[in-house]
Simulated scan of single mutants.
Amino acid sequence: MEQTEQNLRQQTELYGEPLGVLMRRIAGTLGLTQARLAEAIGLSAPMLSQLMSGQRVKIGNPAVVSRLHRLDLLVHRVTEEGLAEPQIAIELDDIRGSTGAFTRSTPASAPPSSMPTASNPRPDQRPDPRTVVREIQDLIRGVASAGEVQRAAELIAAESPGLAELLLTYGTGRTDDAVAHYERHR
């Protein structure tokens, strides 16, 4: 029992709260079974159970952490914005299919200038705004929680309102709103 309590304390240090509390809140708000939650974040059901019960401390796969973070942000949007079931299903599919914050679509041996990215597309292609926005969101959300982004925006709002808006729009806002922001300022 002592080891489990220590594991739960370590989870709180790593994730802000024990994973069981976090995952039950996500599953409850989104109407997911434990099996569907495991599928959405890319874990086996037994591994999810071990993490939720405190038998294991840490999620080793960064892509799983990224998906879990995105689900937590989705829960925030559901409670704040009242997203409808069809939109929740779309978001869940998008999260389930995501690969995490860092992906490489071409071999590492390719010269950097030839690797197409949202910011450096092939010469014959213009970057898709949604792709650019998703990369920015993944970057911000990969380094800070929604609460951290909100606190940072509050701290700089008086002196840099545009930068505060940027942080909130891409760090905690809806993708559609961020795409509209991107298109207005591009």
Rank of each mutant, 00 (worst) to 15 (best):
G16P: 03
L19Y: 11
V75P: 01
L37Y: 06
R122N: 08
L92Y: 07
E165Y: 01
Q6S: 14
Q55Y: 10
L68E: 02
E165G: 06
R130G: 12
L30Y: 07
I88E: 10
G54H: 05
A108P: 00
H69C: 03
L139F: 09
P161M: 04
D177T: 03
D138P: 00
D93K: 15
S160A: 15
T33F: 00
A152F: 04
T175N: 07
M23L: 12
M23C: 15
P116S: 13
E165V: 01
A152E: 07
G100I: 02
G42D: 07
L166A: 14
G82C: 03
Q11H: 10
S49G: 14
D177Q: 09
E39D: 15
A144L: 02
T175C: 05
E2D: 14
R130E: 15
M47W: 09
L168A: 04
I156Y: 10
V133N: 12
V78I: 04
G162E: 10
L92H: 13
G31Y: 05
R122S: 10
P129H: 15
A152S: 13
A27H: 10
R36D: 12
E81C: 01
K58D: 15
G54D: 06
S109A: 13
I90R: 15
A45S: 10
E159P: 00
N120K: 08
Y182A: 14
A178S: 11
G42F: 03
R184W: 08
S113G: 00
S44K: 08
I88Q: 13
L139E: 12
M1R: 10
T12G: 10
E39G: 08
R122T: 05
M23K: 04
G16I: 01
M1E: 13
A118I: 00
I41C: 09
M1W: 08
R70C: 01
Q11L: 03
Y170A: 04
I59D: 09
V78A: 11
I136C: 06
T172K: 06
D94F: 03
L22E: 06
E159Y: 05
D94C: 03
N120C: 05
T131M: 04
Q34W: 04
T172N: 03
E80G: 00
A144C: 02
A45E: 14
A164N: 09
S160R: 15
